[in-house]
Amino acid sequence: MNDSQLLRYSRQILLPQIDVSGQQQLLNSKVLIIGVGGLGSPVSMYLATSGIGHLVLVDFDQVDLSNLQRQILYDTTQIGQEKIVAAKHKLQLLNPEIQITAINQQFDKKFADDLFNQVDVVVDCSDNFATRFALNATCVRLGVPLISGAALRWEGQVSVFLLNQANSPCYNCLYNDCEQETETCNEVGILAPLVGIIGSIQALEVIKVLLNMGQSLAGKLLRFDAYNNKWHQASLKQDPTCPVCNNTKSV
């Protein structure tokens, strides 16, 4: 690290658990973020400013006026732009020293595996079950840790799946691949600060998983009911009948 980097990251280098070596580890890390909307905004902004050396962003959407209430990566001058382009621009202003790869593509089952083999952690900031199940299946198959967050209305949830470790539950253990689609933010609404809270917890968990420190949300699901100000955390075990993680491991 040069003097400018030591100063830029000084407030977290001060933390004894991080120190210069932890910061160097973050600078050497590569994180894949699927979706740069409400959750992807705080996730990518905090990971960029924290000095995660290489961020890979995947999204296929354009900035819409209705996004600006909560997708704080974007501003009014960027309406109509590809989100990936606008996001990269903003993140490089926040931290010009990190590398950002922007992929303008929808994540689905056909998405190339190569990318997953090159990253340390994947962050799920998508907005629908189909993407979440496809992303989980890829992370299980390739053994990449997955930090999953979701928010809708006044409620949100975060979990960490350490899919690089044996006997880790996966997203499919939680929802058992229910085909039913549920509501989206476009239909039932979402409160802006809620995605900030949930996305910030995801970013925090990414740092802890990258540095392998502290108590992560691995094997747990944290739920937040913002309207009633209730937090709830319950433990989650691998489903012995899960067709995604158990089949893969037995092959």
Binding site: G35, A150, A151, C185, A234
Partner: peptide, 26 residues
């Protein structure tokens, strides 16, 4: 009792059962 369970799980005296809505937005 603060541990995720399936629909077939049998409960016993004094247990706490909590139901959570699905959240997929982002």
């Amino acid at each position: 009792n603060q541990e995720y369970a399936s629909q077939d799980t049998t409960v016993k005296e004094g247990d706490e059962v909590a139901f959570f809505p699905p959240v997929t937005g982002g």
